[in-house]
Design a protein around this nucleic acid. Sequence first.
RNA 1: CAAGGCGGCCGGACAGCUGCGCUUAGGAAAGCAACAUCCAUAAGUGAGGAAAGUCCGGGCUUUAAGGAAACAAAACACCAGAUAACGUCUGGCCGGGGCAACCCGAGGGAAAGUGCCACAGAAAAUUACCGCCGAUGAAAUUCCGGUUUUCCGGUCCAUUUCAGGUAAGGUUGAAAAGGCGAGGUAAGAGCUCACCGCGAGGUCGGUAACGACACUCGGUCAAGGUAAACCCUGUUUGAAGCAAGACCAAGUUAGGAGGCUUUUUUCCAAAAAGAAGAAAGACAACGGGGGGUUUCCAACCCGCUCCAGAGGUAGGUCGCGAUGAGCCGUCUGGCAACAGUCGGCCAAGAUGAAUAGCUGUCGCUUUUAAGGGCAGGUUUUCGUGCCUUUUAGAGUACAGAACCCGGCUUAUAGGUCGCCUUGUUUU
RNA 2: GUACCCGUAGCUCAGUUGGAUAGAGUAUCGGCCUCCGACGCCGAGGGUCGUGGGUUCGAAUCCCUCCGGGUACG
Length: 134
Amino acid sequence: MSEVLVIKKRKDFLRVAAKGKKVSALALILQAARNLSSQGNPPRVGYTATKKLGKAHIRNRCKRRLRAAVRIVFPTLALPDTDYVLIGRYNTAEIEFQRLVHHLKKALIEINRELSGNDKILAENIDSAADISD
RNA sequence: CAAGGCGGCCGGACAGCUGCGCUUAGGAAAGCAACAUCCAUAAGUGAGGAAAGUCCGGGCUUUAAGGAAACAAAACACCAGAUAACGUCUGGCCGGGGCAACCCGAGGGAAAGUGCCACAGAAAAUUACCGCCGAUGAAAUUCCGGUUUUCCGGUCCAUUUCAGGUAAGGUUGAAAAGGCGAGGUAAGAGCUCACCGCGAGGUCGGUAACGACACUCGGUCAAGGUAAACCCUGUUUGAAGCAAGACCAAGUUAGGAGGCUUUUUUCCAAAAAGAAGAAAGACAACGGGGGGUUUCCAACCCGCUCCAGAGGUAGGUCGCGAUGAGCCGUCUGGCAACAGUCGGCCAAGAUGAAUAGCUGUCGCUUUUAAGGGCAGGUUUUCGUGCCUUUUAGAGUACAGAACCCGGCUUAUAGGUCGCCUUGUUUU
RNA sequence: GUACCCGUAGCUCAGUUGGAUAGAGUAUCGGCCUCCGACGCCGAGGGUCGUGGGUUCGAAUCCCUCCGGGUACG
């Protein structure tokens, strides 16, 4: 129920970046894509910290703070069968932690809404295709 | 007390909540068992002085698993020592800087050769433009003698010119071929001499670099700089790198050319040789392969070699951390780097990458604002300087292991300890 | 991990081999031209030669160290 797996494969990161939705918040960027290969999987999350953020210890700090925020937010709000990718921004290591959590929550709710809307469109397309075949 | 030099150490602490990696133990399901897997389980453990840059040196692994010689390429270069090794470290020498403590130095060879040295300057390397001289030699004038003159002879004195001598002087330049004084000369010059400097030898001290000397000799004293220009001399070095490499699992492909031995079939055929096809094989023979190049000796691998094509895009385990040039302490030797003896200890092991996130309290630093005290200015208000504690604020660095060690280099808030130098004051 | 390249005016680049003037185009500014603007013409300013050392009489250039950016291979 509250389990969150970690994305580790480069292939998965590229798939989410190419096919998913993207939402920018103050201190982070959230990407998300449905993973419909099999049903009933817990949500998965990956973290990205580019060289633009700083040197190695700053990038590690960004990932740790994002991970701590995810521990608070994701178990209740993340959708199953979905891959999320969190990208750090220039102020991820500096911003107050409460605001970081707040922005992550907002971004997650917004992207979930977009994803579910996308699902509806998909469902409509499937329905119309079924109509045509009929 | 102030200023400075050198070296060492630390580089936030505590508490709470929520979490992570690894090891060990325990448990769970399946299974003959083990490994792997899982866990609201327990215990232990979990970044640095630079983990950084990747600039050197090694271990380790593979490569041809050996040796010798020559060549090429690269690096290094005062001397001695330390070290597994080093371009590192220690001590010394020399040169330079600083009043000093102390610091800095890629510091062999320029009489092996080649190249380069702009502008300026006579000249940038066996030079000779100006200048000086013109003793010597020649010519002319003059002069002297002879002669009526023309002219003849001579060259002691003087002048000019030429041959020539010279490197003292010459607005330069980063750099101009010892310095200074005297003698000397036509003018000059180590041409000669004294002193200083320089070179060679000797003696003494030192392992040596090198130093000292009232020692001896040297005036063809040798004729500039540049080798982080080519180069010469000496020393060292094979190459690639943990994505090294070993094993396991999954999956894909299309062949062609050339070639060794044996057996066999067909053609020609008495047979052999030859041509074509098939099968098998690796003792020998044969062929092929590879070190930066070549040669020699020795040895190895493959039975195939070369060309082409297909798939894959990195799955798992080991390598990989509890035995190492390891860490801490004592003692001994050494000026020191370091070496040795004895005792104790085991201390991260990840792989989209753990070692943390948040909160609170305290500590430290700093200056700002408010308050307090002192000094002295001023009629007062007031502002100035110093000190102090309280409150509030700000700051609390550089930075994250990735196979492992030894160094180097670079970044770094602040704190702390020791030794030393100079100045001032006091005793 | 290894190998290598680049950094020069606001911008794009020469000059670096072989040491001695820091240059070109463009942009900016001023003037001329035009009724005005563009184009054109004339002129000017603008440089720690990425940083810090060293060698040398002299360094953008040679050597070393750092900083920033980039490329290739596995």
